[in-house]
Design a protein around this nucleic acid. Structure first.
Length: 933
RNA sequence: GGGCGAUUAGCUCAGUUGGUUAGAGCGCUGUCUUGACAUGGCAGAGGUCACUGGUUCAAAUCCAGUAUCGCCCACCA
């Protein structure tokens, strides 16, 4: 093995091997355990959020696989309608063409071509991360059978009356020219203007003044509304006003939607271009007037002068014209909420179009009841509130999109505009008795991407075809165990999956939903391209030089003027680029940070810390292998195990238990912490040191049985630790395990299919022994350092007092004390020597430390300044006095003694004795030294 | 406007049903190339657990309120 841990060397090798051997395929044997991968966009590349979630899913899958379960990680990719069209359109433009050059079929062909070439970026990256998915079952939402599931779902819902089509006001993206869902609209706070406009009364008796942030929409006004109780305008209601710039007269109506306190208390009503106004128009039977074309220009319903103008150009022109006519009274700045499309960033237009909707009343109730009944639980539990609140206030789901890439809606229109729904044209003709003479045209719209994603749980299990269902293990893997995902798609996806799988299969898609936090940068900022603080997980894994990183962060920014600032910050934060950390270190960072209910700040220095941890493990393995060789070691009889061996085996058992309990509750952070603590601070810091004497000459020659037992323990603990760590850090553990398996007496091709370790019983006696040993050694080391005694120089140790236990332990464990504390001798002084009056009291010229009843003396022999030792003792005394005071206070409180559990009081009493003893000892020692000085 | 969460060491975070003198990593200080590891060892420094009250023998932990920050949802022109 290399002296240093080099993740790139080992990680490359193993993944291909695992996949080739088919180790990640579901076996079909044993208790099933299935996780669905939320299908990433086919256009996507792995970002931190994916890497985090995939690490957790992979950990669970590997853990369960090792438990002997039939672990299936069902993966796949989403066709992502809008995102994919944007990517391919951009590519077409880069080729010097325009999208308009393409027919629908030609465009779709081009998308498929793109998909074949670059649609697997993210799955390649998942492999780099170590994701142990069953790639043989990888699916794409537009695979023929998944498309069949989509059509089937649509038709059935339509037949059940749960899908309908109709003209509705929807969120319209004028750039992408498609409807988008409420969830895809981001409401941003922006500074706009509020204009006050005069509408003259038809009867010539003055005018009314309305305030608006969107003056161009006045072309579509159908009335002016006032509050019914508003005294000021009582006489106006029922009258008409002249709509400026047009030749229309519109009524004044009363509606309590109007807030009389705001502005003038008069509101212009444009039902075709505002959701509230739509409601008002409906209530008063006023037909909406649509003034926009789909691309956001003014249409023929407006006066000629404005036709064809872009909505914002039109706004400017209208304001000028109003001003010219003296109808513009005031313009003032106004803070407002502007709806923007999350894909295009454009201002969204409420727009009247024919769209398809799924009725949500019945499905919503079902989705709610499946969670309320406890069939699905959320981790952390409070997310159920978010889910509940949304489900209780569902609006019908607009599922049609005016795109080309996606599942085309299975509806056909005849020449009279009558609509027929069916699985295909032939079925439509048959169902509705339409002969060949009737010409049919399929609806041009496609279904939004989330419609097919909503079926993911059962469509990947073969639904609706019975044969495919049997083959895919529909009955076996559904419901799946846990869905790991971010809160941001609870509405988009989680809720809809629950409703759809529930409705069509009478099952829940998953039993638990584990909601992860968001990955932020080290300062808690959201990672975003525009902030220039995005970390690519692949760069953390493989490293990247500074120039490439700067280039990556400053390329194709929406606001190119930010490039300089981003470059500067990047150069400052990563003066040497980013080091290679390896997939294992990144994974361990994620699991360590994965507490509940909290976003996590990704700090690269923490990732480096875990790379160091893996280096530590690597070197512990080197040390072990150096001593254990590669032949099986005869297992020693239990009585041949020395105290350190019994201790480390006991600690290993506790660690297994802790990890099991933590993972059971999805506490990845606690599990990681326990492993870190065990490997570094117990196995490396103490056990390896305690094992050395037995392994080295002359001890090893004198006591070969002990040496054998130690070697066996080393190999065994390392081998089990590898298995324990494997779900967290699969690569390094495979590498080490392959080398230690022989000496540990274990056989197998790969660690990933080895059994999960089982915790042995704790060995309390060995634990207490080693706690004592550590206390004694630490006390001596501390004394030496504080007095500035050469750390490498062997010293003698004298011991006074001490209990029978102390004496017994020192007899059994003294060799280890001497070795680890660098002592050349240990000598018990007879009680007489401790007499205060004795002139030859050895303690007079020694540094003293206390462990329980024992006084540990290191003779100073004039090596050390007495004042220094006095300072050290004074410091200790101070600490002990504080402890004593706090304990005394507690015990002096009668109610404490009376009410606290006996064990707590007893503990406190014991503590009192110890502090008292220490204070006495230290005081005596200080007096002695002072008399000497 | 409604809801959720957070506030613990310089930084990033643990702290389970209340019970030692509140822990870890990174950073910091001192020291050591000791035969696994300087990506390291050993020893240290560093905290009024946001604030104010309350419950309790006992509060970082439970309750109420306050402050600050963050997120989600919401129709005010």
């Amino acid at each position: 093995m290399d002296k240093s841990y080099r993740p790139d060397d080992i990680e490359d090798r193993w993944y291909g091997e695992w996949e080739q051997r088919g180790l990640f395929k579901a076996t079909g044997h044993g208790e099933p355990y299935c996780i669905l991968l939320p299908p990433p966009n086919v256009t996507g590349t792995l970002h931190m959020g994916h890497a985090f979630q995939h690490t957790l899913m992979d950990l669970l899958i590997r853990y369960q696989r090792m438990q002997g379960k039939d672990a299936l990680w069902q993966v796949g990719v989403d066709h992502a309608g809008i995102a994919t069209e944007m990517v391919v359109t951009r590519q077409i433009e880069a080729d010097g063409q325009s999208r308009d050059d393409y027919s629908r079929d030609a465009f779709i062909d081009r998308v498929w071509q793109w998909k074949q070439e670059s649609g697997s970026t993210i799955t390649g990256q998942m492999r780099r991360l170590g994701a142990s998915a069953d790639w043989s079952r990888e699916r794409f939402t537009m695979d023929p059978d998944l498309s069949e599931a989509v059509i089937e779902t649509f038709v059935r819902l339509y037949d059940e009356g749960l899908i309908y089509r109709g003209p509705r006001l929807v969120n319209w993206d004028p750039v992408l020219q498609t409807a988008i869902s409420d969830l895809e609209v981001v409401n941003t706070d922006e500074q706009g203007h509020l204009w006050s406009i005069r509408y003259p009364r038809s009867d010539g008796r003055g005018d009314v003044v309305v305030a608006t942030t969107r003056p161009e929409t006045l072309l579509g006004d159908v009335c002016v509304a006032v509050h019914p109780d508003d005294e000021r305008y009582r006489d106006l209601v029922g009258q008409t006003v002249l709509l400026p710039l047009t030749d229309r007269e519109i009524p004044v109506i009363a509606d309590d939607y109007v807030d009389p306190e705001f502005g003038t208390g008069c509101v212009k009503i444009t039902p075709a271009h505002d959701f509230n106004d739509w409601e008002v128009g409906q209530r008063h039977g006023l037909a909406p007037i649509n003034i926009f074309n789909p691309n956001g220009t003014i249409n023929d319903n407006a006066p000629k002068t404005y036709q064809g103008l872009d909505r914002f150009v039109a706004r400017k022109r209208i304001l000028e014209d109003l001003k010219a006519q003296g109808l513009l009274i005031e313009e003032k700045p106004h803070a407002m909420v502007v709806p923007r499309g999350d894909r295009s960033g454009e201002i969204i237009e409420p727009f009247l179009t024919d769209q398809w909707f799924v009725k949500m009343d019945q499905l919503g109730e079902l989705g709610l009841s499946l969670v309320e009944s406890g069939q699905i639980d959320f981790v952390p539990g409070n997310w159920i509130n978010t889910y509940r609140r949304w489900m209780e206030d569902l609006k019908d789901w607009c599922i049609s999109r005016q795109l080309w890439w996606g599942h085309r809606i299975p509806a056909w229109f005849d020449d009279d505009g009558r609509c027929y729904v069916g699985r295909d044209e032939a079925e439509v003709r048959e169902r509705h008795g339409l002969g060949e003479a009737v010409s049919l045209h399929q609806d041009d719209d496609v279904l939004e991407t989330w419609f097919s994603s909503a079926l993911w749980a059962h469509s990947t299990m073969g639904w609706p075809d019975p044969e495919r269902m049997a083959q895919a293990g529909f009955d076996r893997y559904l419901p799946t165990q846990v869905l790991v995902t971010g809160f941001d798609i609870i509405f988009f996806w989680v809720a809809r999956m629950i409703m759809m799988t529930g409705h069509f299969t009478d099952q829940v898609p998953f039993k638990s939903v584990y909601i992860t936090g968001l990955i932020r940068d080290a300062d808690g900022q959201k990672m975003s391209k525009s902030r220039g603080n995005v970390l690519d997980p692949l760069d953390v894994i493989d490293g990247i030089d500074l120039e490439s990183l700067v280039a990556k962060r400053t390329q194709s920014l929406m606001q190119p003027d930010k490039a300089k600032k981003i470059e500067k910050a990047t150069r400052q934060e990563f003066p040497n680029g980013i080091d290679s950390h390896g997939a294992d270190a990144l994974r361990f960072t994620f699991t360590s940070l994965a507490g509940h209910g909290r976003d996590l700040n990704f700090d690269l220095s923490r990732c480096a810390g875990y790379r160091h941890f893996l280096n530590k493990l690597w070197n512990a393995a080197r040390f072990t292998l150096m001593h254990v060789g590669d032949e099986p070691i005869t297992p020693p009889p239990p009585q041949a195990l020395d105290v350190p061996a019994r201790w480390i085996l006991s600690r290993l058992g506790s660690t297994i238990k802790t990890v099991d309990e933590a993972l059971d509750q999805y506490r990845f952070d606690l599990a990681s912490q326990a492993l870190y603590e065990f490997i570094w601070h117990e196995f490396c810091d103490w056990y390896l040191e305690l094992a050395k004497p037995a392994l080295q000459a002359p001890n090893a020659d004198n006591d070969p049985a002990c040496a054998n037992a130690t070697r066996h323990t080393l190999a065994h603990v390392l081998e089990v630790s590898c298995r324990l760590l494997h779900p967290f850090v699969p690569f390094i553990t495979e590498e080490i395990w392959q080398q230690v398996k022989a000496s540990a007496g274990v056989a197998g091709d790969s660690i990933s299919t080895q059994p999960w370790p089982v915790a042995a019983a704790e060995d309390e006696q060995a634990t207490r022994d080693v706690e004592w040993l550590k206390a004694v050694i630490s006390a001596i080391r501390s004394t030496r350092t504080e007095l500035g005694l050469a750390p490498g120089k062997p010293m003698p140790l004298l011991i006074q007092q001490g209990s029978a236990d102390d004496q017994d332990r020192m007899a059994r464990l003294g060799d280890w004390v001497a070795r680890l504390a660098r002592l050349d001798s240990i000598e018990w002084l007879s009680p007489d020597d401790a007499d205060d009056d004795a002139d030859d009291d050895p303690a007079q010229g020694a540094a003293v430390s206390l462990v329980g009843q024992m006084r540990l003396l290191i003779p100073l022999a004039g090596l050390v300044d007495v004042t220094e030792e006095l300072e050290r003792l004074a410091k200790q005394l101070d600490k002990e006095r504080q402890g004593l005071a706090s304990t005394e206070n507690k015990l002096a409180n009668e109610r404490f003694v009376a009410n606290a559990p006996e064990a707590v009081v007893a503990k406190e009493r014991e503590r009192l004795t110890q502090h008292q003893h220490a204070v006495d000892e230290l005081t005596t020692q200080i007096e002695k030294l002072q008399s000497l000085a």
